[in-house]
């Protein structure tokens, strides 16, 4: 039996005093870990140190995709190791990386081809989709992956880009696809195409970018560069801030000389 005093490295895991110990399996080896821990903390508790396969620990970076089964249950489950709490009899497989096909879209922005044709030429393998739905069931973010592939197939890049927006590129769908599609890469290309070609351009952003290019802010930056740390701190603390719940376009700073 592991002692709860044993090295709790990494992110300072302190299990509750009366926590029960439950068995989990890492690479087939059984470990007893306190319940209530997330998979990543449980593995660290068991003595593993993560150099890869662990990132933000906040469920956003997609580095800690995990497949697991519960002993005696035929289903294969997925989750992010930093978000999923260990259960008794969990058999784990970390998938920090899985080979995915990233088509060369260097010329993405200069190409004159419409986005739907662009996706069809970059990733023709999407047409091999058999709509088995495995990707959707796999996605730890609950995205309807099969649906966005279906949308790309019919050329609706904008809708597909929206559907895939929550993707964190963990790659678990890629692992499971029987048609060898790298869904997350297709969706990434589609989101880029949608952003550059399909979404209406904001006039405000365009004008501001123009001002930046014309060097409007160079003198201000230079001035900041010459200030010492204390002075910087002071102007940072005393800066005017937009109230949290103000309506868009309603609030304006008193000092408008920097706009």
């Amino acid at each position: 039996m592991l002692n709860e005093q044993i090295a709790m490295v990494g992110d300072r895991t302190i299990p509750p005093k009366d926590a029960r110990f439950i068995p989990i399996f890492i690479m087939g080896q059984e470990y007893k870990v306190p319940e209530t821990l997330t998979i990543i903390k449980a593995m660290e508790y068991a003595g593993y140190q993560f150099k890869r396969g662990c990132g933000c620990r906040g469920g956003i970076c997609g580095a800690c995709g995990t497949f697991y089964r519960i002993q005696g249950d035929h289903n294969l489950y997925t989750g992010l190791a930093c978000q999923t709490v260990v259960q008794s009899g969990m058999v784990l497989a970390q998938i920090p990386f899985f080979p995915a096909n990233r088509a060369d879209h260097v010329d993405l922005h200069v190409a004159k081809m419409p986005p739907d044709e662009r996706i069809a030429t970059l990733y023709p393998e999407i047409f091999k989709c058999v709509a088995c739905g495995t990707c959707t069931r796999t996605c730890p973010m609950g995205i309807d992956v099969m649906n966005y592939i279906a949308l790309f197939k019919r050329g609706d890049i904008l809708e597909g880009a929206k559907e895939s927006f929550d993707c964190i590129m963990c790659g678990l769908c890629v692992v499971r696809c029987p048609a060898n599609i790298s869904q997350m890469k297709v969706a990434m290309a589609a989101r880029r195409l949608a952003a550059t070609q399909l979404v209406p351009r904001s006039e405000v952003t365009k004008n501001r970018a123009q001002l930046v290019r014309e060097g409007r802010y160079e003198p201000m930056l230079e001035k900041l560069g010459q200030m010492d740390t204390e002075a910087l701190k002071e102007i940072y603390v005393s800066r005017e801030r937009e109230p949290n719940l103000s309506e868009p376009g309603e609030w304006m700073p008193q000092d408008q000389s920097h706009l």
Partner: peptide, 26 residues
């Protein structure tokens, strides 16, 4: 070979041709 298919073909042919072709040839 999927990548020997020309861009021209993939961009302009109907989806049903590509999907069926992939089912039968790839």
């Amino acid at each position: 070979n999927l990548h020997s298919l020309g861009q021209e073909f993939l961009a302009h042919s109907t989806q049903q041709a590509v999907v069926s072709g992939f089912r039968k040839f790839v």
